[in-house]
């Protein structure tokens, strides 16, 4: 550190809050995760100045990969403006002073709680997931020693037991989020609260995908172009959520992940893109949905 820096006012925080030693430790865990795609790497998670459930795992991963020239986007569900997304964005604005954006295409690092943006991610981008429960076998095998062994030996019959139960109970695979995937034919991984709609986007993604679980102290990763296959049965193949004959009320998009918005007490509703940046970008490009104020104007 130069004399000039030392004599200046000391910063309140180290860059991106975590000290450099902690970041190096987390980066080592990330590198290990990248080397063994889908494998859950234990790491010494730190206390963060926010409660668990607010994405402390994701925040630590983001803090460790963020550089001064990065451009950060934070989403919760698909939106940039929810409380969780805003508070994490503010946290990094204060501690790292990096450039912030809501535009998927501009971001170099995107932290997310649920969604993968509709716009295809590119090589220069990193997607960081906030993960509550990293262990896909947990619900049927609570013993950590046993699940670790199952991963080590690739014993994954249990995952299909869960899917079997779904079909026996509901007539189809009813799991709609945290839908288990097989990574590179080796490790079964929980994509965490992400809807299964987004599972196909993980497959051979050009972007680096990193997963951080704060409370459970696990990091895992999907390097670019990794095989990610959603598990299923031959006679009950994997399908994504579909909204037939539905278009976004604001931008007219079809085949995207929709949020349903209730309009009045009479039960009228509309569907809009869950990915708010995608929706706004389309509108600015002139795509308008039937309930868009500009649409009515244009029709007149």
């Amino acid at each position: 550190m130069s004399l000039d820096q030392l004599t200046n006012e000391a910063p309140a925080y180290n860059f991106a809050y975590l000290d450099e030693q902690t970041k190096r430790m987390i980066r080592r865990a990330i590198l290990k995760g990248i080397a063994v795609p889908g494998y859950q790497v234990p790491f010494a998670a730190r206390e963060m100045p926010m409660p668990y459930g607010w994405g402390t795992g994701g925040v630590q991963v983001t803090a460790s990969v963020l550089g001064e020239s990065d451009i950060l986007k934070v989403i919760d569900q698909g939106a940039d403006d929810t409380t969780n997304a805003v508070s994490i964005r503010n946290f990094f604005a204060k501690t790292a002073n990096v450039e912030l954006t809501t535009h998927t295409s501009e971001a170099t690092v995107i932290q997310t709680r649920h969604r993968i943006p509709e716009e295809e991610l590119q090589e220069h981008q990193t997607l960081v997931y906030q993960v509550p429960i990293p262990e896909p076998l947990r619900f049927l095998e609570p013993r950590e020693t046993e699940t670790r062994k199952m991963h080590a030996l690739s014993e994954y019959g249990l995952i299909h037991v869960k899917l079997y139960e779904d079909i026996a109970t509901h007539g189809h695979i009813a799991t709609t989020y945290a839908y288990p995937v097989m990574v590179e034919g080796r490790y079964v991984m929980d994509p965490s609260p992400t809807p299964k709609f987004d599972n196909p986007k993980m497959h051979k993604s050009k972007a680096l995908q990193l997963f951080g679980a704060g409370r459970e102290k696990r990091i895992y990763a999907l390097p670019p172009h990794t095989d990610v296959v959603s598990l299923d049965f031959e006679d009950h193949p994997f399908t994504i959520q579909e909204w037939p004959d539905t278009q976004c009320a604001m931008c007219g998009a079809e085949g995207v992940y929709f949020d349903e918005v209730i309009l009045d007490d009479a039960g009228n509703n509309m569907f809009v893109c869950s990915d708010s940046d995608y929706c706004e970008t389309r509108q600015s490009e002139g795509h308008l949905g039937p309930l868009n104020a500009d649409y009515k104007e244009r029709m007149q």
């Binding site: 019959g157 249990l158 037991v161 079997y164 139960e165 049965f233 031959e234």
Partner: peptide, 15 residues
């Protein structure tokens, strides 16, 4: 599912 578990562990994928 209890009976089917071993079959699934062996790779049976037809519900």
């Amino acid at each position: 599912a209890n009976v089917g578990e071993r079959l699934m562990a062996l790779g049976d994928r037809h519900y």
